Simulated assay, not measured.
Amino acid sequence: GKKSLIKQNQFRYFKNRYKIEDAIINNNIDVIYEIPGYSIDRLKWIGKIEYFVQAPRNVIFLGFNNRITPFRDKRLRQAVLKAINIPPLVLNVNRGNAIIARGPLPAAFFQYNSLTQDGFNVKESVKLLKQAGYKDGLTANLIFPSMAFTRSSLVNIIQSDLDKVNIRLNIIKTKTWEEHNRLVKSDSCQLFISGGFPEIVGDMEGMLRDFFYSKSPFNLLGYENNRVDKWLDKAKIEMDPDKRNKFLSLAVEQILKDTPAVFLYHVKPHFAFNREKIKKLVVDPYGIIQYHRLELK
């Protein structure tokens, strides 16, 4: 192939997201990795910024501690799901930088067909709360990663929606991912914000196994369903693609019925670059910029 015209790459780390925006505006940097929605909305008006946009391969969700009360009760989990108005939440948090989740897997890698989680319905939410014995509502701890910039607005919107059905959140902020993961695994956690993506792009079996297989060390939800375990075990060894997808479809369908989490959105990774200097940016499916294939103007 063509020899790269780039002799040297210089990487810079910014703790402050706004300083990153200033740097590309002032020509101090030429490429930004996976920028959040609020930056996309602002930078697009500058005139010299172009974006490389990938199909989403991740999911952000509101997780329940399925191991202990109160959210061992599926009716309460469904009450929370029906109390959250997800479409406007996704728009306000991500500014068009995400796709509304229908379930745990991005549609780009898995055809849901008719499979989707239940939608917004306040009356049904209140009804389910009463059926579960919480007619006066309840208070629940939510573990929130304060180091994740966009999730502060996310948790505020969730809190506002749940307040309307008298589900009150006690928000516990964590400062590091180590602290966050430790608290999520503890009994003090009842709700938490999290997300993930598959290790192998295009193959969702591993992602489902990480989050929803009962014996997985990454199953922070404490979710257990023998049928889901069985279908994931079969999918792991099945060589026929159609049969394998059928097992995965059955697993997703059961997961949506059980509501171990509220699936919120799939982020569309955006890579910003200075189009006055760069003609073409190439990014592989794992989000790694291929600098040897980058074309300069």
Rank of each mutant, 00 (worst) to 15 (best):
F120P: 01
I20M: 15
D161L: 01
L191C: 09
A235P: 03
P36A: 11
W45V: 07
P285A: 11
S152K: 14
K268M: 15
N85T: 05
F263N: 05
N219C: 06
T150C: 00
I49K: 05
G222T: 06
L296E: 08
Y286Q: 13
E276P: 00
Q290S: 12
I193D: 01
N97C: 10
R67S: 14
V90P: 05
R151Y: 14
A148W: 12
K268T: 12
L220G: 01
N245V: 05
F109I: 12
D163K: 15
S216M: 02
F109S: 09
D284M: 09
D41G: 00
I167P: 04
R95K: 15
W231C: 02
Q78Y: 05
G37H: 10
R244I: 05
V201P: 00
S152N: 13
V184G: 00
P217Y: 03
P198K: 02
R42I: 13
W45Q: 11
L208I: 06
F120C: 02
L248R: 03
C189G: 01
P104Q: 08
D161C: 04
N66T: 13
L81F: 08
E124K: 15
K277Y: 09
Y286C: 02
N97S: 14
G202T: 10
G103S: 11
A23H: 10
I84M: 09
I35P: 02
K280P: 01
P269V: 09
L232H: 03
L5D: 15
L91W: 07
K74W: 03
R275Y: 10
Y18P: 00
K127E: 14
L128H: 02
E178W: 00
A101E: 05
D22P: 00
S160Y: 09
F211V: 11
I84Y: 03
S114W: 04
E295D: 12
